[in-house]
Amino acid sequence: MRTFDHIDVYSIAEACTTLREYQGRARLNAGGSDLLTVLKGDFLADYPEAVINLKTISGMDYIREDGEYLRIGTLTRLTDLVSSPLLKEKYPVLSEAAYTVATPQIRNVATLGGNLCQDTRCWYYRYPRSIGGPVQCLRKGSGPCLAIKGDNRYHAIMGGKKCFAVCPSDMAVALAALDGKVIIVGPEGERRVEVTDFYHPTGNELAKDEVVREIEIPIKRTPTQQSFRKFTLRKPIDFAIVSSATVITVAQGICTDARIVLGAVAPAPVRAKAAEELLIGKPITEETDTAAAEKALVGAKPLSKNEYKIQIAKTLVKQAILGVTD
């Protein structure tokens, strides 16, 4: 790892101004569980001059409901999401998703904001600098995407346009199923972005001087049934090959509202709207479930080595929906 300045900040506003001062040559650090791997691998074109420590900002780790919204502060640790009684009771999809992330040690330092903003895991992108300098690819701004012709077994099966790396965040998938919004603070003030829109083809919504402050989730008035499923190659540690989050409202045996979200299949969490529409107004049965799973994957375009993800995705959607009925 190379040397850099380490700057403690005490407010989100200070974080923004410091970012602006450094004009893109500084990086935010929350739990550091992703950032340090990026700095050690040294695979980006530029190395930051400064690392801005967010952990010195107090009062940014909270999980609370106020009136219309559930609010979660950006510095809330994943461990706290796992153990929060409020989430377990009313937003289990969040605590379940958090529980599938990495290992207890990592969850003890990883924050929700950091999880949403973590860098991609594409193995071309992350190729260590130590032999031959940083790998260039489309996401880094020069050259073609290396995964298209290369080994793309873990890459996107839908929604890829230029870059085919999948969104690595499990929390984003669960939040998308709850209609979560990311509250972003910049020099000009605050703005809100849907979690599904937070991710761009080659990065995310944040400008160079913006900071995530909070996640905002509309409180559901009627009880919902929620479920998170994740397929990995090994039990802990691994990122999802595919994941699926569902939030479904059922009244008198009929599905009245549904969110079905697929994770790790595209550069952003994908709402399977066609599948949601199919379910609404129908009872949840083996048959509607299977039909919804098929619908969710319509339009998937696998690359050369990842067709298997489609079948796994269908299975997960099925299990996630059925999971909510039992």
């Binding site: 190729y127 260590p128 290369g150 090994r234 802990p236 540690i237």
Partner: peptide, 27 residues
């Protein structure tokens, strides 16, 4: 699980314990 992957140029694609998957105690 375990297999080292090289691309067409002979470049190692998974030279780390994240992408080279050894089983853990959970397996």
């Amino acid at each position: 699980y375990e297999d080292q992957k090289l691309d067409a140029n002979g470049k190692h694609l998974n030279p780390n314990f994240h992408d080279y998957k050894t089983p853990t105690t959970m397996e």
